[in-house]
Simulated scan of single mutants.
Amino acid sequence: MNDVPSSETTVDSHGSVARINGAMDYLTQPWVRERLRQVIAGADRFVILELTGVSFCDSAGLSVLLWARGEAEAHGVVLVLACVPATLRCVLQMTGADQVLRVFDTVVDAQGFLGG
């Protein structure tokens, strides 16, 4: 399964919201990693990854999410997930990644938590 990924980032007084669409897998992970690196490097306080459009995520995609958390932390930026599809939320729970990655139901919920 290889849906070509795309992203869109908006920045406002609440911080950066990056919407990722398509597959996050072993084929697309270099592109997703580079895109998230750019978003994190340009972030001021926090990044919300809005994942509604993620159609598939394998272990390589999960690895990118965990890497992004560490990358954000190294830049003094808080990274959280929002609008996580049910299948990906299940993967996060089964692997214990939901204990490391903070997950919110909506972008507004994440912004409220982050003080936006």
Rank of each mutant, 00 (worst) to 15 (best):
F46I: 10
I48V: 15
E50F: 01
R45H: 13
G42C: 11
G22P: 05
C57L: 07
G96C: 14
L62C: 01
V91P: 00
P30K: 12
V47G: 05
L88S: 00
V84C: 02
T52M: 08
P85G: 10
G53Q: 08
G96A: 15
V32H: 03
C57G: 04
F46W: 09
V17R: 00
A23F: 08
L49Y: 02
C83H: 11
E73C: 02
A68V: 07
T10R: 10
L66V: 15
L51I: 12
W31A: 08
A60H: 01
T87H: 09
A82V: 12
L62H: 00
G15T: 11
A60Q: 02
P30Q: 13
H75S: 08
C83G: 10
F56R: 04
R37Y: 08
W31K: 06
G15H: 03
I40N: 00
R35W: 09
D44E: 14
S59R: 05
A82K: 05
L65A: 02
L79D: 06
A68I: 10
Q38C: 09
G53T: 09
L79P: 01
L88T: 03
L88F: 04
A18K: 02
F46R: 07
R69H: 13
L27A: 13
A82E: 10
H14V: 15
V64I: 06
Q38E: 14
C83W: 06
A41W: 03
T87P: 03
L88V: 11
V17I: 15
E73K: 05
R45Y: 09
I40E: 02
V64M: 02
T95Q: 03
N21A: 14
M24F: 03
L62V: 03
A23G: 12
V78T: 15
G53N: 09
A60W: 01
P30W: 14
T95L: 04
P30T: 14
Q29H: 12
V47R: 04
T10G: 04
G22T: 12
G15E: 10
G61D: 08
L92M: 10
V32M: 07
L66F: 07
V78Q: 15
E34Q: 07
V80E: 11
T10C: 05
R37E: 14
T10A: 06
V64F: 01
G76Q: 11
V11H: 04
C57I: 06
A82R: 05
R35N: 13
T52R: 07
S55N: 08
W31P: 00
G53Y: 08
S16H: 08
R69Q: 14
R89M: 09
G15C: 07
I48G: 00
V80Q: 08
A82M: 10
W67D: 11
F46T: 09
G53V: 09
L66Y: 03
V54G: 01
E50Q: 12
